[in-house]
Design a protein around this nucleic acid. Structure first.
Length: 419
DNA sequence: TCTGGGGTCCTAGGACCC
DNA sequence: TCTGGGGTCCTAGGACCC
């Protein structure tokens, strides 16, 4: 059996842990740059505030109903997530962290255990230890566990835990599960399936395997099998990412090469840090910039540059260098740039290092510099030491006017974000 | 004025190899 | 009439997830 544990309204719940006066009141959290709504408390949902709605469209509704609004505070959410995951990991031999607020547990050897009682204990303990309310779905496949989790959240009678462990329960659940709410079926497929009168998870399972394969490929076939109780999506045991991206909308539109360079240098440095953290190297770097696609009355430009690195690396100076070269090759004057980013891929473990015969760089030496820099920043706060190209102007920095304090981490982190 | 950021996997088609 | 067969790699795009 698999369990899926999911934090309820995660970001909104994190904010409330440190603002208990907001319990029972509508709270929303905005995306970076205070752009869209990305989390809503139950009360905010009840007001009809939709997910992913641009904040400026909601101004009236927010004022009228005294909704408390927060900028997203990923330092806080990341730390709270870590607390939740640590608590959950005590309850099963194997855990897969699926997202910042979700984890799968593999319940091998639980044949004799009362799963409902077990689930309730996990939920109770996690909420007590962290202050974050969670829900749990338990079923023979991940896709069914996802469905069970939905029901655990939706119907208070389940007391936050729903178990699908018989065919009768499976049938009953799938008949109530909207096709668009099935894990793995997004908007495109939902529309297509509805056209064929498939409106629930159950309808979908009644089609033939070959029809599903033909209409939706192997991915759809896996979903079909999973809904019928045959597990095909295994626990993901990989420890390192296959690609790493740092990208941002700029706080204000940028037109000149210089501030954009500064931003790109910071994105590259961030990718390098993430690589070092997971002890790996990247062989490919991609940089991109584009104007605001929503501003249809303005000239549009979007471009990217892929750079094959001579030797796989996680060195900030090297990645910044290549990223800035790439930027120069695609930057064009006369546009108002809105967003840029750096993506590294073709990621390999740090050791053993595959060298290049013609490599002239003293990698050992640069490695030591990076280690010292990481250590200093770990002790004294983020970005205390950085590469000069990252600059100090920060014209590109995001807007986040409603940021909460980083209650659980160092003050430096707060300062870093407020600069 | 104003619309996020970070991932994964699969497929089709083209270029190229023998 | 009639023009092989088998493979790899790369890229772009599309679908999905949170």
């Amino acid at each position: 059996m698999y369990a899926l544990i999911d934090c309820n309204n995660f970001y909104a719940s994190c904010e409330r842990v440190f603002n208990p006066s907001l319990n029972g009141k509508p709270v929303v959290v905005l995306s970076n740059n205070d752009g869209c709504v990305i989390a809503r408390s139950t009360e905010a949902k009840a007001l009809g505030i939709p997910m992913a709605e641009p904040a400026y469209k909601l101004k009236e509704l927010i004022e009228k109903n005294q909704v408390t609004v927060f900028s997203s505070n990923y330092v806080l959410y990341g730390d709270m997530s870590h607390r939740v995951m640590t608590t959950i990991s005590e309850f099963a031999p194997e855990m897969e962290i699926y997202s910042i607020d979700e984890a799968f547990l593999l319940l091998d050897g639980f044949q004799l255990i009362d799963l409902k009682a077990y689930g309730e204990k996990v939920v109770r303990t996690t909420t007590r230890n962290t202050g974050i309310p969670v829900s749990m779905g338990i079923a023979p496949t991940k896709t069914l566990a996802k469905a069970a989790n939905r029901f655990a959240k939706k119907y208070p009678n389940y007391k936050s835990v729903c178990v699908i462990d018989t065919d009768e329960k499976r049938e009953k659940a799938l008949k109530l599960l909207d096709i668009g709410d099935v894990w793995g079926i997004g908007r495109q497929y939902a529309t297509k399936l509805r056209y064929y009168s498939i409106n629930t998870g159950w309808d979908f399972t009644q089609r033939t395997k070959s029809w599903v394969r033909h209409t939706m490929g192997v991915v759809g076939e896996r979903t079909w099998l999973e809904l019928r109780g045959t597990p095909c999506v295994e626990m993901d045991r990989s420890t390192s990412k296959k690609s790493i991206c740092t990208s941002r909308s700029f706080g204000e539109r940028l037109t000149e090469l210089e501030p954009i360079s500064e931003a790109i240098a910071n994105f590259a440095a961030s990718c390098a840090e993430k690589l070092r953290k997971q002890k790996s190297l990247a062989s490919i770097l991609m940089i991109f910039i584009h104007t605001n696609p929503h501003a249809t009355n303005q000239p549009q430009y979007s471009n990217q540059k892929v750079i094959h690195l001579p030797v796989a690396t996680n060195d900030s100076t090297e990645l910044i260098n290549f990223a800035l070269q790439g930027l120069k090759s695609i930057y064009k004057k006369g546009y108002r740039y809105k967003k840029g980013g750096v993506i590294v891929s073709e990621i390999v473990p740090e050791r053993p290092l595959q060298g290049n015969l013609f490599d002239t760089k003293d990698r050992e030496k640069f490695n030591k510099v990076m280690t010292v820099m990481d250590n200093l920043n770990a002790s004294y706060g983020k970005q205390k030491v950085k590469i000069a190209a990252q600059g100090f102007d920060r014209k590109w920095k995001l807007k986040n006017e409603k940021l909460s304090p980083c209650y659980t981490t160092k003050m430096e982190d707060v300062l870093e974000i407020k600069v």
